[in-house]
Design a binder for these strands. Structure first.
Lengths: 404, 404
DNA sequence: GTTATTTAGTTCGGTGACTGAACGAATTAA
DNA sequence: TTAATTCGTTCAGTCACCGAACTAAATAAC
């Protein structure tokens, strides 16, 4: 086994690729300086990468003393990935190339039949999007699917995803792989949202980051030291079961989650009904609050207090540098305002809380991030122990521009 | 820079060392098989390690077909570390060699003056312990100090450690380094306890692990994916501030922690006083409960219910595979019993909860673990990205035997 | 008690990844 | 035109490692 040698070469090749990914069009001399490898070695590796079709010449430098340099960049269409955000009501798909340019994006209502129907729907959406842009299907190497719940690596099922039928009884991963014909990664949607925010949103450069999605339900994603916290059974971040809000020892809490029962949509609607006698939707309650309705204002205050406690619980346990709020309710400025008031009243040291910058697209961006990172890793040095994702800097990425 | 080559050599050297650490006395042929490196290379590296004084011949194999093999092992006294558990009432120190044999161990009451006095006390204890065993002071390379609170890497202070005076206003790390004359690592004591249990206690082989120390106060340590979770400001695990138990919006909760106020000693004593009118110590309340006192039993039940909710909160956020209970109250079997009953009543999926196997020595063992790991890392391949700690298997370690 | 078999460890020659130094090439500054 | 600067290649190594062949030393088999 010439294992060490092989690691050594891959290691260098990967370093070069990373430098090109990060540094845009760049000359071999610059790569040499940045990586510490000698000029000869860089020339050799770049030549090899060019033959294999990963990089290409893109021009020459000019306007400085000394000989002009040939610059190299990624071949954008060397590979594509499909990023999918499978939600209870909507499916979003995007096709992105290696340089993280989005080539096609599409949104549709989730097929209510769930199960195989949703799988087929997604595969179809992705392929149509690719076709529409003239991208050959074989060029797509990987799909990353974000979904609510806890994907189980062993069985391929998605547990705890009550809003989409049948995902907990079938091998979702296998079904997607069959439909697509290439590798598929399943990941919790909120986990993807943290990754997305960490890459292009509110959490750039922050290694200890939490994301809370509050809407119909409540879920959390956590990054510690730059890595996702998935938990022993991929159930980390199921915040609905935090043991406060409702009495956690009531049987109902065991079923729906003591925290989710009171802080998510249903809880908000219930509290407003209890106070005013009227049954309204959450947006309607927010509207009433804007008009100054006392009951509605009280309900929002109480919700924000609960949310603050949820944030406090995360802060106590994991001490993230920043907490990002997302989800249809978490994104409302009325919530953020109130949390900024209530959180310091129940938590001893300051926590940076902000609204998501990517909004509903956070998970999609995260899916692209994990997919492209994974792709770079498998292509250049999967056997390297250090597999931190290397992604282009935020400023160069087209995904960002479409955001909001 | 011949950086890659250097990485390559160090990498192999480290792999060999690791194999020797793990595999006890071992022949070069076996190392070759285990590492995948060729026999010649192993011979070369081992020769080098022997010259540098890290390994030595220890005998020959016998009783099997084929030529006998020369076996090699670590030179135990190549380096020593000092492990220190600095608690509010007691200081424990241990001197351990590279093979994790404990050469000296000592316990004393913590100097009540705190600050520099405690530093001097600890330095003195360590050096006397080393002297008593004839270990030259220069052979000690590193001290690991576990203390309550949040050590701040930048200033060297230890914040949030109310039980030991003056640690939050002085550069503790610098003071220790001046006293010892070698490197010092500061770490939260509960974090060390998790590491200890992960190495030699209840959490062996479990990468996602939580430890809860319940006594005068409450603190938690969390391991995710084999790494400690320290948090952005090293305040992860300050469970006293979990936002339930007492009302988290009361000003007192902001000061002492809503959860700590009710679940730790003071809260237990308060609740018993409220129920019975009598003021008793926590052990006395436990004794009464054993005798069947209704108030005492009720107080323990309530405490266990609170503790279960705390465990639930950790499980919801980080989803560890196992939760270990420690601390003077957490270690009581009455607590574990009750938690095993109450936890399933407020948490939807099963969590493995056990009492600490190392008891009061968990942090000390953890200090040794982190210190020896760090030592191996700095000696053999600090620049290697993958710096997972390599420690001898539990079965060969003397630290364990002294346990309980 | 010789021979076969198995395992340990060395020597030898060779390979792949990388380097330093020297040099030619191409540009701006003087 | 010359000097200064930077780019990129060629050349002749070094270093870590390997495969194969070989010697050395033990047990197993006859």
């Amino acid at each position: 086994m010439s294992e060490t040698l092989r690691i050594s070469r891959k290691f260098s090749q990967r370093a070069v690729m990373e430098t090109i990914v990060q540094g845009g069009p760049i000359s071999r001399a610059s790569i040499s300086k940045q990586t510490g490898l000698s000029k000869q070695t860089i020339s050799e590796i770049v030549r090899q990468l060019e033959i294999e079709g990963w990089v290409r010449e893109t021009g020459r430098t000019s306007g400085h003393v000394g000989r002009t340099a040939v610059t190299y960049e990624l071949v954008p269409d060397a590979a594509y990935i499909a990023a999918v955000d499978l939600g209870g009501t909507k499916v979003r798909v995007a096709i992105a190339d290696l340089t993280c340019q989005v080539f096609a994006e599409d949104v549709a209502p989730t097929d209510p039949r769930g199960g195989q129907a949703v799988v087929d729907q997604i595969v179809d959406m992705c392929f149509r999007a690719a076709d529409a842009q003239g991208i050959a299907r074989e060029r797509i190497r990987l799909a990353v699917i974000g979904a609510p719940g806890a994907p189980d690596d062993k069985t391929g099922r998605i547990l705890l995803a009550p809003n989409i039928p049948h995902l907990d009884t079938m091998n979702v991963a296998a079904a997607f792989e069959k439909g697509f014909g290439f590798d598929v990664m399943l990941e919790n949607d909120v986990n993807l949202a943290v990754l997305g925010e960490n890459w292009l949103g509110q959490g750039q450069g922050i290694d200890n980051l939490a994301y809370i999605a509050l809407g119909t339900g409540i879920g959390g994603g956590l990054m510690v030291g730059g890595n996702l916290v998935r938990g022993a059974s991929h159930a980390a971040g199921e915040l609905g079961f935090l043991p406060f809000g409702a009495d956690p020892f009531e049987p109902e809490s065991l079923h729906y989650g003591a925290f989710e029962r009171v802080v998510a949509s249903a809880g908000i609607i219930d509290r407003f009904r209890a106070a005013s006698g009227k049954t309204l939707s959450v947006p309607a309650i927010f509207d009433l609050a804007t008009e100054g309705d006392v009951d509605a204002l009280k309900v929002l205050d109480d919700t924000a207090r609960l949310l603050s406690r949820g944030i406090g619980a995360i802060a106590v346990i994991a001490n993230p540098q920043k907490v990002i709020l997302g989800g249809s309710i978490g994104l409302r400025p009325e919530m953020l305002e109130r949390v900024k008031i209530f959180l310091p009243q129940c938590f001893p040291y300051p926590i940076d809380v902000e609204a998501s910058a990517l909004g509903a697209r956070a998970a999609l961006v995260g899916a692209a991030a994990i997919g492209l990172g994974h792709l770079h890793n498998t292509l250049f040095g999967a056997d390297t122990p250090d597999s931190r994702i290397s992604l282009p800097p935020a400023s160069t990425v087209a995904l960002r521009e479409v955001a909001q």
